[in-house]
């Protein structure tokens, strides 16, 4: 897992071109993990469908588990400022992984703009890739 995210991050941020395949071994039994190829995610909805809905659910309503939850994006007042969801996507939050290595600035902006204009949200202002670039953190997965 760890290697996987690290490598992905390197590839994206440096524009490094992968060999024909990029099966990247990851850590531990997570281990067996290998990065399948990243989907092409041309817009915010694609990012949401291929990444976010695995936890926040297709309808953006989140889910309730063992005394803990995946928060809803539908009607969530924390989306008022676009900076906040952008920060969470980049850095992760609690058990939520960080996506700074997986998503480029445009994709982060796209998905933030998507969730702020769907699921009953109607925020008019949009986030630009430059805004994302400014707050992108440096996070590295541990060497194995």
């Amino acid at each position: 897992m760890r290697k996987l995210l690290l490598m992905t991050s390197l590839f994206i941020t440096t524009g490094f071109v992968l060999p024909v395949v990029a099966p990247i071994a990851a850590h531990a039994d997570s281990a067996s993990a290998v990065a399948g190829k990243m989907q092409t995610m041309p817009d915010g909805e694609a990012v949401y469908r291929h990444v976010c809905q695995s936890c926040h659910m297709p309808d953006g309503k989140g889910a309730l588990g063992a005394g803990a939850k995946f928060p809803a994006l539908a009607g969530n007042p924390k989306l008022q400022s676009a900076q906040y969801p952008a920060y969470v996507v980049l850095n992760g939050f609690g058990g939520m992984p960080w996506f700074s290595g997986l998503l480029n600035d445009q994709q982060v902006a796209n998905v933030v703009n998507y969730i702020r204009t769907h699921f009953g949200n109607h925020y008019p202002d949009t986030l630009k890739p430059e805004d994302v670039s400014e707050i992108r953190p440096h996070l590295s997965v541990e060497e194995e």
């Binding site: 996987l4 990851a26 997570s30 067996s32 993990a33 990065a35 291929h50 990444v51 976010c52 695995s54």
Partner: peptide
């Protein structure tokens, strides 16, 4: 199938 990372997010969704 045994996935982590992007493929796991996609499949889980």
């Amino acid at each position: 199938g045994y996935m982590f990372g992007p493929a796991a997010y996609d499949f889980a969704g």
